[in-house]
Design a protein around this nucleic acid. Structure first.
Length: 487
RNA sequence: CGGGGUGUAGCUCAGCCCGGUUAGAGCGCAGCGUUUGGGACGCUGAAGUCGAGUGUUCGAAUCACUCCACCCCGACCA
């Protein structure tokens, strides 16, 4: 795409943006209505209610499976980190100090040393690894933790930036820098594959600039996604920590030559933020659209009848359909309550994003069939009861793929290569991703941010290999970078 | 921490500018009846210390002052 025009924004991002010019407003509204979030302030601890958490749980199981395929094991580390531990890595403490919550009283006595509620666990895992690792034979250490962490952000946003959030954080230690780099990229690829295949969210894998990297890291890699309004969201990060944390926490080992060396560490994390990403990438004016792979319910069955004598035969058919689909491994919900009309249920389950709905009434019983209604394109089709357990899994995969393709088309239609600063500014105003040559000078980066509110998202790993003048200062660069407004 | 805004029924809000009987609507909730293939309808009913305090006044949801809470926008950030 080479013009400054913005392709049509999909879904409720656009319609409500027109009303309020305020993306988070509609986002909150939809989330609330879908009962994904607590009515209480996001500051509170219960930031994820059962339905939203169920999406996270399905995602978590799949991610955990992928971690284990790369020989990572799970462990659990302390919630509270002594202040002195946190102070050991200068950049790290500087980066996190403003957002740490502190425990200063235990029982009814003031603590001699304040304890930080972990904002991330490098500072507690470092000292522990220092004790565990003595020899090159102890390496690599490949550990992941599923945990909640707390960051006292100045401005919380539902799912995207809650004070308390759930995530996984992997922490590895290696004998060489190269091995650490390899692991860092390996986990980035796990994230990319997971996001694209399970959440149907296309991402750009890339390297963060110096100003955007994790505090204390040597290098930070990221997977960046485009939301339904064109803004960017960092969906996961993988950090090569070099030997910075090993030096800060004395993580040393004796190598084959009996020489004392610092270990090389990495860390990588993905959080409940991805639930927000799913909502904002796929949602439309009817509410959520959940990718079948992580939807808490993949199929909802709505029985329909008028007279009592119809009820028995309809419910018998519903039970047969339900049993067949359960046997096929489908996550299914039968909404047989009589308090609400079928029309009400249609709307309700669409709001909650169930990918596929089965309508089953007297007409269908007569034809030995059911009506399948897709959430993504709202198409309805009648399918024979006999083909149901074969057709539904196929259809779910079709929906999964359609969601990914739609999101990818949208991102590509809203990504512009800009060769002039004016073109960059215009495109940012249109809420697009802008691909530019950037010289690498933080001064240029900072000026772009100050003047356009766009941040440097990443240098995509996939580079065309050409070169050109820096979009701002004109110095020749052979690196493409993505700039965009971001959450 | 700066800038804006809002607090009235379970929810969303009207009423306030210009003070005046028992403070309203829609949704939701309860009961009865008719309904049910895209958020059904009728009738009846329950439900509010008008965010808190102080003041002005014969009289305050309405005016003044103080406080509290929440929301939005910025800076910071997964």
């Amino acid at each position: 795409m080479t013009t400054g025009e913005k392709a049509e924004t999909r879904g409720f991002g656009q319609s409500l943006a027109n009303k309020t010019s305020d993306f988070p407003g509609w986002y909150n509204d939809v989330v609330m209505r879908a009962e994904l979030a607590e009515d209480a302030p996001v500051r509170g601890c219960m930031t994820v209610r059962p339905y939203g958490y169920a999406v996270w749980e399905n995602a978590r199981d799949e991610l955990d499976r992928r971690f284990k395929e790369t020989d990572v094991v799970n462990a659990a580390f302390p919630l509270l980190i002594p202040k002195s531990f946190l102070l050991k890595e200068a950049e790290h403490v500087e980066g996190f100090a403003p957002e740490v919550a502190w425990v200063t009283i235990g029982g009814d006595e003031e603590l001699a040393e304040p304890l930080a509620i972990r904002p991330t666990s490098e500072a507690i895992i470092g000292p522990i690894y220092a004790r565990w690792i003595q020899s090159y034979r102890d390496l690599p250490v490949l550990i992941n933790q599923w945990a909640n962490v707390m960051r006292w952000e100045k401005r919380p946003r539902l799912f995207l930036r809650t004070t308390e959030f759930w995530w996984q954080e992997g922490h590895t230690a290696h004998a060489t820098l190269d091995e650490g780099e390899e692991r860092t990229l390996q986990m980035l690829e796990v994230y990319r594959s997971f996001l694209e295949n399970e959440l149907a969210i296309p991402v750009i894998a890339g390297l963060k600039s110096e100003s955007q990297k994790f505090p204390g890291a040597l290098r930070t890699y990221t997977v960046e996604a485009m939301m339904g309004d064109g803004k960017a969201l960092q969906a996961g990060t993988s950090h090569n920590l070099g030997d910075h944390f090993a030096r800060a926490y004395d993580i040393t080992f004796l190598d084959e030559n009996n020489t004392l060396q610092y270990a090389w560490t990495t860390s990588w994390g993905m959080s409940t933020r991805i639930v927000g990403a799913v909502i904002m990438v796929h949602g439309d004016q009817q509410g959520l659209i959940l990718p079948p792979h992580v939807a808490p319910y993949q199929v909802v069955i709505v029985p329909i009848w008028r007279k009592d004598e119809q009820k028995a035969e309809v419910m018998a058919a519903v039970n047969r359909a339900s049993a067949a689909l359960k046997a096929a491994g489908i996550r299914i919900k039968v909404d047989a309550t009589e308090a609400k009309s079928p029309g009400w249920k249609f709307n309700e389950w669409e709001l909650k994003g169930v990918p596929l709905r089965i309508e089953l009434g007297p007409r269908d019983v007569e034809n030995n069939s059911v009506v399948l209604a897709r959430r993504d394109n709202r198409a309805k089709a009648s399918v024979s009861m006999d083909e149901l357990s074969q057709r539904v899994p196929e259809l779910l995969e079709e929906i999964q793929k359609a969601l990914f393709d739609r999101a990818l088309d949208f991102r590509q239609a809203n990504t512009l290569h800009a060769t002039t600063y004016d073109a960059l500014k215009a495109s940012i105003e249109q809420r697009q991703f802008v691909d530019v040559f950037w010289c690498g000078d933080p001064v240029c980066e900072e000026r772009i941010k100050a003047e356009t509110k766009a941040t440097n998202r990443c240098m995509p790993l996939d580079q065309p290999g050409d070169s050109g003048p820096c979009v701002l200062c004109g110095a020749v660069s052979d690196k493409h970078w993505i700039f965009a407004r971001a959450y």
